[in-house]
């Protein structure tokens, strides 16, 4: 008897050393993944490498930067040998400054109402649709959502955006800034992002005798079996590198550095 075929979703192969292995092949296409991490945990580098690996495979990519000016971002990312400025020049990687986008849309104000949120969604979707973006990074969704005062509106924003991008076949990484990456922490600033996201990748630090070791852990990824172990992460010139974190060293000394 022939074995019955098992349905597997097509993957967006991240190309990041070790991550595809953890995800058993990559991120399911069209997923919205929350990359939640503390400051300096390597979120932006990870996200940028995700785009660069896509660009190297000929995919159109977009990066919305709200936390640092694109000029700085590009300058920082140039030190990595995997990055080539030509990718930006030729339009394979499109970096958008969110403050410029806000200004163009008349959104340079303190809070967003429903119309503003729809305008923002429409703009992002327009860009993705027009250029044919298949990999998108929003850095960070926390900064974007700061201007949306209602939790319900944040939920609508992320849900609608995620749905529309999925329809367009775009795999999205939403970067979320968190202050703690302990077991009890929320993986998002507003509490709603983590419920809506198809996947959650947590990044943080483990303290070992006064030294901080960066770690990455895939907490959730709909549509794929995946490792849920903590992985040690190193940001090298060749990109992000991962290895399973030592079991006897995966917990910060006694307690988390951020307290219980």
């Amino acid at each position: 008897m022939m074995p019955s075929s098992v349905y597997t979703r097509d993957r967006c192969v991240t190309g990041i050393h070790g991550l595809d292995e953890i995800l058993r092949g990559g991120i399911p296409y069209g997923s919205t993944v929350l990359a939640a991490g503390t400051c300096g945990s390597g979120k932006t580098t990870l996200a940028m490498e995700f785009l660069v690996r896509g660009a190297l495979a000929g995919e159109a990519c977009a990066h919305f930067t709200a936390t640092e000016p694109s000029v700085k971002l590009l300058e920082n990312i140039r030190q990595y040998s995997f990055f080539d400025m030509n990718m930006v020049d030729t339009g394979l990687i499109n970096v958008f400054d969110v403050d410029v986008l806000y200004s163009w849309l008349g959104l340079d104000k303190a809070t967003f109402d429903l119309d503003d949120v729809h305008a923002l969604i429409k703009a992002i979707v327009d860009i993705v649709n027009t250029i044919g973006v298949t990999r998108l990074v929003i850095d960070s969704v926390t900064t974007l959502c700061y201007k949306i005062k209602s939790e319900q509106l944040i939920r609508d924003f992320l849900f609608t955006l995620g749905k529309k991008l999925a329809t367009l076949g775009c795999t999205t990484v939403l970067i979320s800034e968190i202050t703690s990456a302990t077991e009890n922490a929320h993986w998002s600033s507003f509490g709603v992002e983590e419920a809506i996201a198809d996947g959650i990748i947590v990044m943080g630090d483990v303290e070992r005798m006064g030294h901080l070791l960066r770690f990455l852990q895939v907490v959730k990824m709909r549509g794929t079996a995946h490792s849920r172990a903590k992985h040690s992460i190193e940001l090298t010139q060749l990109g992000v590198m991962l290895t399973p974190m030592l079991k006897w060293g995966a917990v910060s000394d006694q307690q988390s550095r951020w307290g219980a």
Partner: peptide
Amino acid sequence: DSPIMLESVLLRTLYILRT
């Protein structure tokens, strides 16, 4: 940074070997 960062030692070694 330190001999206690064993995973970093492994990853750095792998990185150097890749180059």
